[in-house]
Design a protein around this nucleic acid. Structure first.
Length: 278
DNA sequence: CGGCCAACCTGTGCGC
DNA sequence: TGCGCACAGGTTGGCC
């Protein structure tokens, strides 16, 4: 499910259930997802309470009052479901790997069929050294993402723009969908080498990336084949896609008349309009 | 070091 | 109905 807008949608959905709440019980149904669960997860979490829920790139970070932070990544197919104490409890499915129950009786269920997701725990003050977080680039919705740094980040990069934007070191949080949408809005060909993109065009991408992500968050993210919200709500940004998944359909740019095309780049589908993306 | 690709998994949809 | 294949929103480790 998850690029930045979907992860942010999930984080916001989690807030009312988890922020300020105490963990009563942790259930772990298997030893690992992409990385092992910490063996002492249960002991470290039970009795702790969540002070803040943050997001960094596609990670959700849950700070506890015990100076530990829970790090959560949804991978390709990860989902978070929250059920209130009074709600009907759906039976656990075979891909429900971790369940947190709060003292109030709410449950957070982490489901992930493909198991590319992760959940781990680290001492909050070691965050800047954390291997999963330390090399991530600027947050596109924050002030640290700006034209001059972005232009510098493209310098000397011989890879196609698609690959460079997918690289979380360039800018945090983009994935296959939002790279395609941002490049279309900017009129940039995904095959264009980063070091051959004119400075002004590179600069134009900065506000475009920001707005495409903000637009998607405002729509509750994109729902491709499942729900995105923590209570099963559907995002609807997929109805606003200009290129992603629109192979063979007409380009939406006024007066363009081109056809959206699908190619493969670094093993993944790229959608773009060869007529207006140069 | 930069860049590419395979690998990690399961589920779904489509053609035959 | 079943089978095989292509494909899916991500990340990374190993290789050149």
């Amino acid at each position: 499910m998850p690029e930045l807008p979907e992860v942010e949608t999930v984080r916001r959905g989690m807030l009312p259930y988890l922020e300020g709440q105490t963990v009563a019980r942790v259930r772990v149904n298997r030893p690992d997802l992409r990385i092992p669960f910490p063996p002492d997860l249960k002991e470290r979490l039970e009795g702790a309470h969540f002070v803040t829920l943050r997001r960094r790139s596609k990670y959700i970070l849950m700070d506890t009052d015990r100076d530990d932070t829970v790090l959560l990544h949804l991978g390709m197919s990860g989902r978070i479901t929250l059920t209130g104490a009074k709600d009907e409890r759906p039976a656990y499915g075979k891909h429900d790997h971790v369940v947190l129950e709060t003292r109030r009786g709410d449950q957070m269920i982490f489901t992930d069929p493909r198991r590319f997701g992760m959940l781990t725990l680290y001492p909050t003050d070691t965050e800047s050294d954390h291997a999963l977080l330390r090399d991530i680039g600027p947050e596109p919705l924050g002030n640290s993402f700006n034209e001059s740094d972005f232009v510098r980040a493209l310098k000397g990069r011989r890879s196609p723009m698609k690959a460079v934007l997918l690289d979380q070191k360039t800018v945090a949080g983009l994935g296959n969908i939002y790279v395609a949408e941002a490049l279309w809005r900017a009129g940039i060909n995904p095959k264009r080498r980063a070091d051959q993109l004119a400075k002004a065009r590179a600069q134009s991408l900065v506000p475009i990336i920001r707005t495409v992500l903000e637009d998607a968050i405002a729509s509750g993210g994109s729902t491709l084949r499942d729900y995105v919200g923590v209570s099963g709500e559907l995002g609807y940004f997929q109805h606003k896609f200009d290129v992603y998944g629109r192979e063979g359909e007409p380009c939406r740019r006024a007066g363009c008349g081109g056809t959206v095309t699908r190619i493969t780049q670094s093993g993944r589908s790229t959608f773009y309009c060869p007529a207006c993306q140069t």
